[in-house]
Every structure is written in C-alpha cells, then in structure tokens.
C-alpha cells in the first residue's frame, strides 16, 4: 500500500505534528519507501500464530491500595511550562465544549 499525501496529512493531524506542504510531499515519499520494505510480511502465513504483545509470562503484579508521597508542588512548578494558582495553563481549545468528549 503506497502512502498518499492525504494519509500523511491525516496522521500528522492525529499525531499533532505541524508539517508544511513541502515536508508533506517528502514524507509521503519517505514513508512509502519504508513501508514498501514491510510488504514482505504479507507473504508470511500467520493464521495459526498468536501475537506477541509483551515478553514474559504471568499476570501483571498488583500494588496494595496505600498512598505514597507524590511530587512536591515546588518540583512541579520547577518543570512546568506555564502555571497559575497551582493549575497548568494552556491556550483555550477553539471549541472548548469538546472537553465533554474527552477522557473516559
């Protein structure tokens, strides 16, 4: 499957990467070239093969429901890009009611 310019613009949007027209054209070529090397996989019969998502057996370990100290507000402030009254501050989303579409 060759990557189209539209694909590149779509995934750049999904990945929140601003790319200009020229870069979009270059990336269309680069990604198509790289993905052409992946086609070999389509010839492998994996019908009866289970996927490896994580190496090693056993279930995930569980932690007891007990509190541990977090990061001090001072430490957060020292790394924060922009803070006010203890809040992280970001530019307003164009359509802020979209906040009700986020999260869980």
């Amino acid at each position: 499957m060759a990557v189209t310019r539209e694909d590149v613009l779509h995934i750049a949007e999904l990945a929140r990467l601003g790319i200009d027209a020229t870069r979009a054209d270059e990336l269309t070529k680069e990604l198509s070239a790289i993905l052409s090397h992946m086609e070999v996989l389509s010839q492998v019969d994996t019908a009866a093969v289970s996927a490896t998502t994580i190496v090693g057996a056993g279930g995930t370990p569980l932690r007891p429901d007990v509190g541990v100290p977090g990061v001090s507000s001072a430490a957060i402030a020292s790394i924060a890009s922009a803070m006010r009254d203890g809040f992280f501050i970001v530019p307003r989303l164009a359509t802020h009611e979209d906040s009700s579409e986020n999260g869980a």
Binding site: M1, V8, L31, T46
Partner: peptide, 26 residues
C-alpha cells in the same frame, strides 16, 4: 511518529501492526 501512527490507524492496524506482532512470535 508518523510511521507508527500510520500502522496503528484505522484500516492499517491488521495489515501492519497485528501482522508484525504475529511474525514477532515466529
């Protein structure tokens, strides 16, 4: 990042990501 977003995005997941996971097992 773009390559990874592409292989996970709707329509390509099975052909790339899922396939690669299976071959990883092999």
């Amino acid at each position: 990042i773009l390559l990874g977003t592409y292989v996970l995005s709707a329509g390509y997941y099975d052909a790339y990501y899922k396939k690669a996971q299976a071959v990883r097992t092999l």
